[in-house]
Structure formats: C-alpha cells, structure tokens
C-alpha cells in the first residue's frame, strides 16, 4: 500500500536541534539533512492532530517529540506549508519532492519529506527558505 500524500494546504513541523541552527537562530539547511539510516526527513502532520489552533498543535507536537527524543535546550520547531514547500523545490531545482504520511504505532501523525537525497544540500536549503515559523522546543 502506498502512503498517502499530505494535502498541499496542510502544515508540517520539523524538530531542529540547536546544532542545526545558525548562531542567529535561523534554520540552516543542515536541519533537513538525512541521517545515514533514514529514508526520509521526519516531520509531524499538524492538521492530523485535530487541535483547535496552531498553539495547541505545537504543544501536541512537543509532547510527541519529547516522548521520542531528548529535546535540546536550544532546539526549535520549524513549521512549513506542504504546498509552498513542494512548489518551491520544484521551481528552483530540477527535482520534485513528496510529503507522505508515515504513521507509527505511537505517533500516528508522523510523516516524511521524501526524495531530498537527489541533491540533498540544495533541496535542504530550499526547504529552509520556506520555514514559515519557528517555535522554541522548551
């Protein structure tokens, strides 16, 4: 069974450790690099969480991240719109990326940005350009 594409109008959240941010607090392209064992860039699908507003979605996402990761004191949560992200990468590189639902037993909103490895550094910087908001992880 193929994984479902996220609607273009929806939003995703990416956990960005402090070491992937610049000293000015901006998201660097390194925040969207894959680890060697990863197939896609892990994110959370905000609308899937069915919260009343963005703040509640962020709180919920923080709960999910803190159950899976040790949240660094300088880490941030980056918010991106799926459609803006995919269009931007397609327009300014020769590649298309996909944002697919990748549910896990303990994290049903888990999703992934696929196909970034085609030109990882360029695509990661293009993704970083489309971060619409940054929230402290603490």
């Amino acid at each position: 069974m193929t994984n479902r594409h996220l609607p273009l109008s929806h939003h995703i959240a990416r956990y960005c450790p402090g070491s992937r941010l610049t000293q000015d607090g901006e998201v660097s392209g390194a925040a969207f690099y894959l680890r060697p064992e990863e197939r896609f860039v892990s994110v959370e699908w905000l609308e899937y969480l069915q919260q009343p507003d963005r703040n509640s979605e962020i709180q919920k996402v923080l709960e999910i991240f803190s159950s899976k990761l040790k949240l660094g004191s300088s880490a941030k949560i980056a918010i991106l719109n799926v459609g803006n992200l995919c269009r931007h990468v397609r327009t300014y590189s020769m590649y298309s990326i996909r944002v697919l639902h990748e549910p896990e037993d303990d994290d049903p909103a888990h999703s992934g940005i696929h196909d970034t490895v085609q030109d990882e550094m360029l695509i990661s910087e293009l993704i970083a350009e489309k971060v619409s908001a940054l929230h402290p992880a603490h």
């Binding site: 610049t22 000293q23 660097s28 392209g29 690099y33």
Partner: peptide, 26 residues
C-alpha cells in the same frame, strides 16, 4: 560565517545577505 553541524557532525558554513544571496559550504 554562521556555523551549524550536519547530523554526522560535519561543519556547515553559511553566509547570507538579504533574501537573494546565500553561500553555504558543507
């Protein structure tokens, strides 16, 4: 430069000027 690290601990340098100029070196 602005400096961050990749997941493998490599140095990632970044210079930015306005919205239209960026130079990153991994």
């Amino acid at each position: 430069p602005q400096i961050s690290l990749t997941p493998e601990g490599d140095v990632y340098l970044r210079w930015k000027a306005g919205k239209e100029r960026l130079f990153s070196v991994h």
